[in-house]
Simulated scan of single mutants.
Amino acid sequence: MSLSRRTFLQQASVISTLSLAGLPYAVRAESANEYWWSAGSDHSDGNGVAGFSDNGNSRLLETGFRGHGLCVSPDDGRIVMMARRPGMRGAELTADQNLTLFDVRPGRQFQGHACFSADGARLFTSEIVDGGDGRIGIRNAHDFSWLGEFSSYGTEPHEIKMMPDGVTLAIANGGLTPSADDGRTADKNALVQSSLVFIDSRDGRLIHKYSLPENKASIRHLDIAPDGTLVIALQVQRQWLDDTEPRALVAIRRPDEPLQLLEAPGNLWLALRDYMGSVVIHPDYGVAGVTSPRGNLVVFWELSQGKLLGYFPLHDVCGIALSQQHDCFVVTNSAGDMRFIDPVSLKELKPLRRHSDTVRWDNHLLGPLPVSV
């Protein structure tokens, strides 16, 4: 870490400490509320799009299917949520709380994630055909009519996001060949053909393709910094390994550099139980937070040097996003808890703690958004 950055973080830490005294929150409380949305469920197992505001309001809009990832249109703030395995439907939520459902095409399955084109005109969806070959579906983003598809240049594409150039799609190919019984690879001897792929969203041309040195690791989720740095969350298929050695679960790809695994002590990797669930980058601090619901931890890395900063414990934590108003990380879990974490001290900002008695949060969190709860 450079001297200038260390000085900056020390100064930010002082500001964070003062914030905990309460005065800045009294001032910020007068500002407009922020809203986050996630796939979620209620206590009667109704599934839908779940919303939460920083004043504690929450609600669930039922869709009839369990959702997974969400994305937001850059032009009008509409939210799209995609179904998880088996992915047969998607849902759109407008700013005035209208829900529209759309279906996958015959012979395809949605894979839990989507993203909009830079102008908001097209919706790209991660999909598979029979056998697991990856496709990126292309739809009209307003009426969801079919426009075409590209290859994902891999097996089982999962999260997809648009790069800062507004043209290049980043694709996390999970590499798990679906089987008839559970939708995942059944053969322990099969390689997990995972890859990070970049394609041109205008014509589907392959730009770059990167693989991991560990052939039992699946690239699942990613986030992208404004400079094009990607942080990637991995899941290792331990049931197909013949040892108990720790495996790295987070990777980074900086512009014009190869894909690299981030470092952490072996006992931390083992505590995370081979599973990272979601990732978000705080661009102002150059810090990434990655959640592990199996390990009950959120782990943080500084990105310029790839240095492990620390972790925050929360049972079954998976959703993670940012708060602009409070300048911090926001995390959620399946118990309806919402925690706000300072990006410098990595401590909870307890005056902001929230809990929903009606909504159980699912894997991913999106926000803050203009769609109110």
Results as ranks from 00 to 15, higher is better:
Leu169Cys: 15
Pro226Leu: 02
Arg247Cys: 14
Ala180Trp: 08
Leu234Thr: 02
Pro226Gly: 03
Glu245Thr: 14
Leu272Ala: 13
Ser179Phe: 10
Leu268Ala: 14
Ala225Trp: 08
Arg184Thr: 08
Arg184Phe: 14
Asp165His: 09
Ile160Val: 15
Ala248Tyr: 00
Gln239Ala: 06
Pro157Lys: 01
Met162Ser: 03
Pro178Tyr: 05
Ile219Met: 07
Thr168Asp: 07
Ser151Tyr: 01
Val236Ile: 13
Asp256Trp: 06
Arg253Asp: 03
Thr229Gly: 00
Asp243Lys: 12
Ser195Ile: 07
Asp243Asn: 15
Leu176Arg: 15
Glu263Cys: 05
Asp203Trp: 03
Pro157Ile: 04
Ala271Gly: 11
Ala172Leu: 11
Pro265Tyr: 06
Leu191Met: 04
Glu257Gly: 03
Asp182Cys: 08
Ser211Met: 03
Gln260Asn: 02
Asn267Lys: 12
Ala172His: 07
Leu270Val: 09
Asp242Val: 08
Ala225Cys: 12
Thr155Met: 10
Arg202Phe: 09
Glu156Leu: 07
Leu234Phe: 04
Ser194His: 00
Phe150Asp: 00
Ile252Val: 13
Asp256Tyr: 02
Ala190Gln: 06
Arg205Pro: 00
Ala170Lys: 00
Ala264Ser: 10
Val231Thr: 04
Phe150Arg: 04
Pro258Phe: 01
Leu262Gly: 05
Gly175Glu: 02
Leu272Glu: 08
Arg247Pro: 10
Lys209Ile: 03
Leu230Ser: 01
Ala172Phe: 08
Gly228Thr: 06
Val250His: 03
Glu263Pro: 01
Leu270Asp: 08
Lys188Cys: 01
Asp187Cys: 13
Lys188Pro: 12
His221Ser: 14
Gln237Leu: 13
Leu191Asn: 00
Arg220Pro: 06
Arg238Asp: 13
Asn189Gly: 12
Tyr153Thr: 10
Pro258Lys: 10
Trp240Gln: 00
Asn173Phe: 12
Asn189Trp: 09
Ala251Cys: 03
Pro178Asn: 01
Ser194Cys: 04
Asn173Trp: 14
His221Asp: 15
Pro246Gly: 08
Ser201Cys: 08
Asp200Tyr: 00
Thr168Val: 10
Pro226Lys: 09
Pro164His: 08
Gln193Asp: 13
Leu270Ala: 10
Gly154Arg: 07
